[in-house]
Design a protein around this nucleic acid. Structure first.
Lengths: 362, 362
DNA sequence: GCGCTTGCTGAATGCGTTTGCACAACGAAC
DNA sequence: GTTCGTTGTGCAAACGCATTCAGCAAGCGC
């Protein structure tokens, strides 16, 4: 038998935590008003139910003085809203997604939301997936960042049944969710135009990662070259992991082989920068002997030597669209996903592209 | 007056959300057991109170079939634990911190926690700070990433009164929180040793960002050079923002001025990579005419042209220590912060350093 | 046979909010 | 002087789960 003679409070153990939590009830007692009134003042619900200005004043003053903040969990339980958005990222280590996370976080904050980071193991590890779903339960909505593997997308659809969902860079096969993406077709077309106009004939495509967007860009590459009268452009396609070093190794062998291309169009800046390194290792000068074009325009693209010609994604605009759409869905969950929203990329010409060496020009 | 004749349920409006939420009560009813039993099975609390294996079995089966997940908010309200860790980052756009976020997220996940991303505006914008604190209220503990400005740290200390707090890369003046950091003194010493041993005499220090760690590294630079008999090493110190382009511009003017150094030791890889670019712009060859050393060893350091000699931070180890310490504090909130934990860096020699040009050598 | 432990379960309470409803006080309108 | 609004305020019921307490069988020693 446990004696609890000291306190008259119920014997329930304080849920092991940071001291006795200050509640609205306490505040009310100190001021001689009810907890409800405190809540009304603090939740801003006063629009509907009036509170005497003087009472409000007193409450606000005490609250400020005590540095009190309402318990978010209790609030969330009551309102079924947490102010948290889930961000499920394919690969956080990817500089591009890192940038996206930063931008999305900022944008979310502008709307009063915070961001919970999720991570989908490349193998869609079941255990991870589960705990993931758990954490995501906190969220009011979720943004899928990058092309998740099919299986991941599957369980996600299950786990987040009925949860507002927006996909960014989902690449092609649009899933059952609202989708925002850059116009891959257009972006690659710009790159190809640029390269072809410079006079290149031997053009390779370096695909970093076998993602949906990558495939879309690859297809766009083939199409754009065909449109310019090239035959068998698919012969120039090379696939590698979307990592600096993987791309470097891949391009190194490519450059050492015979029939070296005079231009490489990469599906991502990461791959392109890897290619840049490969060229340096092999002793091929960029852009004099080899032109390289990236895709994404990550900040780094401006700093490489030479700086990288690349297809710019309007990151800010993409983030805004995604968040905006998600908030719509949160406000009105029954809404249909609707058509994918496309934003237009543009080509940024820097130092990594030039006319091909004489011997190779048209 | 509002008629609600249709339903016999209480009139309280469904908190605008995804259909009628499945609860433990529902599950219990379907199975003819009480909600408490369902909770006991699902919360794993069965260790204390036994549940008949057959009952447990039935419950688990139905739960799996229905794909039911307990409401995290309700659970959090009851247990005062959310399974969320806050990550407050000085600058998410910084590649180094991006990496750290990835690593910490992974480590947190390994312990069953998810990560909420926070952002401290560079100006410690009051409004942002406030809503920030709000979101952080969800968290069981918070990790401070990088040297927050003093004011930010102040309000944070206030807002998170009594919340378990661990600081990473807090640079020098240890605040009132548990701290994990790399041994800046040692790291810079390694870099200086390397450069001096190569024969350099004119050595500059490029500080990216006026952070605590930066200042610590700067001081270490001065000390290390003094120890090697250099006089007035502080004359070689240059400060710039910790961004690629800012560093580039800064170093560009440095290199164009007279008395150009033969080696630059940077306080971060970002600054070092900016310097690399500057050298290329000015036409100074690295490492033949100019050696450059970074600090951090971000993945990119391996891919620059030339690849970057830099001081490696054991990111994995740092993350593990930080998370481990935080979990300790969460388990036992009354624990004292204790001494800062230091991890040892090591020098990674790559292609950006070499002996100085003849005319400059000893 | 009687108590007493043991194993399992349900009812009930609390976590800290929000919010529907009731109600008191007070003018204004009849 | 009743009858209505209005304006503030308090009471109490959720929100969905964890957990305590009490209860009820069965099992066991005496």
């Amino acid at each position: 038998m446990r004696l609890n003679s000291e306190s008259t409070k119920p014997a329930r153990a304080q849920p092991a935590g940071r001291g006795t939590r200050l509640t609205m009830k306490h505040i009310g007692e100190m001021l001689g008003v009810s907890q409800s009134t405190v809540s009304r003042v603090l939740s801003g619900a006063s629009m509907n139910v009036p509170v005497a200005p003087e009472t409000r004043e007193r409450i606000l003053r005490l609250v400020a003085e005590l540095g009190y903040t309402p318990n978010p969990m209790a609030r969330a339980l009551s309102t079924a809203r947490t102010g948290l958005l889930g961000l499920i990222v394919r690969d956080i280590n990817d500089p591009f997604f890192g940038l996206a996370v930063a931008e999305l976080t900022a944008e979310a904050r502008r709307h009063g939301y915070s961001v919970v980071l999720g991570h989908v193991g490349s193998r869609a590890d079941e255990a991870i997936a589960l705990s993931q779903a758990l954490a995501m339960g906190h969220c009011d909505g979720v943004i899928l960042l990058g092309d998740l593997r099919d299986q991941s997308r599957l369980w996600l659809a299950g786990a987040a049944r009925g949860m507002p969902l927006v996909g960014l860079w989902q690449g092609g096969r649009a899933p059952q969710v609202a989708v925002v993406n850059v116009d891959n077709q257009k972006g690659v077309a710009l790159a190809v135009e640029h390269i072809v106009d410079l006079g290149h004939r031997r053009i390779a495509f370096l695909q970093g990662g076998r993602t949906g967007d990558g495939l879309e860009r690859q297809a766009a590459f083939v199409n754009a070259l065909r449109a310019r009268g090239f035959t068998r452009p698919e012969q120039g396609i090379h696939v590698t992991a979307n990592e600096f070093l993987a791309a470097t190794r891949s391009v190194e062998t490519l450059l050492r082989a015979g029939g070296r291309p005079t231009a490489i169009i990469a599906s991502t800046d990461v791959a392109a920068i890897g290619a840049l390194k490969a060229a340096s290792l092999v002793g091929v000068r960029v852009p004099e002997q080899l032109s390289i074009v990236g895709f994404d325009d990550i900040p780094l693209a401006e700093v490489t030597v030479p700086s990288l010609t690349t297809v710019h994604q309007p990151m800010r605009q993409l983030s805004q669209l995604a968040i905006e759409r998600l908030l719509q869905l949160i406000a009105n969950p029954s809404e249909q996903p609707g058509k994918p929203q496309m934003v237009q990329p543009k080509l940024v010409v820097r130092g990594s592209t030039a006319a091909p060496p004489r011997s190779h020009s048209r």
